[in-house]
């Protein structure tokens, strides 16, 4: 099957021709398959946010192209507008963008802009609310009366309600407590399973991306530095640290164990770690 998103030699320069000129993206190329869960990592200012805003046509590339299902998203106005709906983008701290009187109306903003009829909008709002775990009663209250974590869910539901084929999230769990984070990540997974959607998630939590994603894109200095499975990427721990990035805590523990002489291979998730340690124990017993 053809890739859903194809990014070719994408470059972006901010404020070209002024003293504030700044290259945020430099020749980035990759493609995304339908149904993938991709993590994007990179330290602040590495170009992650700029990259994301290109994928649904909010920013126009200085050079290069983005194709959605084989069609350049800047081909004409109609295609660009469609791309906004087909590629949903959840910004960092999305709760600051709520504006309606009720949660229901705020979630309905996107679907209404798509020009859907009343019934379809209603179905989508209720379904999106369900994905993020909002109750019927909560739909009728003002979004400004909710707690921070719940506001975040309303904002994410507002994008999910457009039923995008690709859902891009910029640090969806930033500033939430562990329970809230776990729930939001679970909501995203539920949406992916239900719609066979592609998910791209920017995160600073290496253990989250190691656990959830099948593929990692590493941004460094406006360029795509690495592109591979979490195993492949975290195997290059030294390079990651040099870029100012972390590796999952469990990986550093295992690297240390190896240094101390235990015959273990590096792991990336808790489940893997348990399996490896169990095998080790078994092996000792047999020996």
């Amino acid at each position: 099957m053809a890739p859903i998103l194809q990014i070719k030699e994408l470059s972006h320069v901010y404020s070209a021709g002024t003293p504030f000129q700044h290259t945020a993206l430099d020749g980035v190329s990759f493609s995304v398959e339908r149904g993938e869960f991709i993590g994007i990592i990179g330290h602040t200012g590495s170009g992650k946010s700029t990259l994301m805003q290109h994928l649904n046509g909010l920013l126009k590339p200085t050079a290069g192209s983005i194709a959605l299902d084989g069609v350049d998203i800047w081909a004409n106005k109609k295609v660009t507008r469609q791309a906004r709906f087909r590629v949903g983008l959840v910004f960092q701290y999305p709760e600051y963008q709520l504006f309606e009187e009720t949660v229901y109306k705020d979630i309905a903003f996107g679907p209404k802009n798509m020009g859907l009829d009343h019934k379809e909008v209603d179905r989508r709002v209720r379904e999106a609310a369900q994905f993020v775990g909002l109750t019927e009663a909560q739909l009728e209250v003002s979004p400004f009366d909710l707690s921070g974590g719940q506001k975040r869910r309303v904002a994410i539901a507002g994008v999910i309600a457009m039923e995008p084929e690709v859902l891009i999230l910029d640090e969806p769990t930033a500033g939430l407590d562990p329970v809230g984070r776990e729930e939001i990540l679970e909501n995203i997974q539920a949406y992916r399973r239900a719609k066979n959607a592609t998910i791209m998630m920017v995160s600073h939590s290496m253990s989250d991306v190691a656990r959830l994603t099948q593929r990692l894109l590493v941004m460094n200095g406006s360029k795509l530095a690495m592109d591979g499975t979490p195993e492949q990427v975290f195997a290059r721990a030294d390079e990651l640290v040099e870029m100012g990035l972390d590796i999952p805590e469990i990986t550093s523990v295992f690297l240390r164990l190896k240094q101390m002489g235990l015959p273990v291979e590096p792991v990336y998730t808790i489940e893997q770690a348990v399996a490896v340690l169990k095998a080790l124990k078994e092996g000792k017993r047999h020996a």
Partner: peptide, 13 residues
Amino acid sequence: DKIMSAQKARGAD
């Protein structure tokens, strides 16, 4: 700018 981008991402015209 940020808010405009976010609402545009939800199809605000």
